[in-house]
Amino acid sequence: MIELRDVHIRAGQFELANLSFLVDAGQYAVLMGRTGRGKTTILESICGLRRIDGGAILIHDTDVTDWSPADREIGYVPQDLALFPTFTVAEHLQFALRLRRQPARQIEERTKELAQLLGISHLLTRRIQGLSGGESQRVALGRALSFHPSVLLLDEPLSALDEATRNEMQALLRRVTRESGVTTLHITHSADEAEALADRFFHLHDGKLTER
């Protein structure tokens, strides 16, 4: 569950005031709006990378407003993916689990399971240089899901892909999020994408959030 209560964010030229919404556990919410209107800012605030100027952010009824990103346990896929250039694909999937000091066997199992789910088993030993757009996207998604977060934030995950890959990834997103029961907030400016994926539609316009 993701809840924003009267959140106020000032960032550069724009200001977002009185943002409130609630996405129930397991729902797939899509947040739409034109580019440069603060959609990314909202995601960054939810995962703790940006401080908010007022209000509260709740994850599963816990107020995490002042928590560090590390403690929030939120899976985040930024628009530029920000994969780790010195890591292999497998290391991306294992990183969060290593940080949690999980036993090696468990990490191994989870890596296999994720790779299979995302169809990247043949890429595990590869470095990220030279991966295609779709492959990179899957690695970033796997990295975000690896530690079983209850909330997943996706920032325009499909915008840089060609149409065939986009359709493939849409199907994958739907399947993966259903299977894991993760609460998802997905940013896009594509109405088709929203139609294909969302249980809930939110629209950001002139700093105001409305639900359709």
Binding site: C47, S68, P69, A70, A82, A96
Partner: peptide, 18 residues
């Protein structure tokens, strides 16, 4: 170096130091 990688690492459970 893209600071976003470090941001994502922090959402994965890293402290700033890690």
């Amino acid at each position: 170096i893209n600071p976003r990688s470090e941001d994502v690492a922090r959402t994965l459970g890293c402290t700033r130091g890690q």
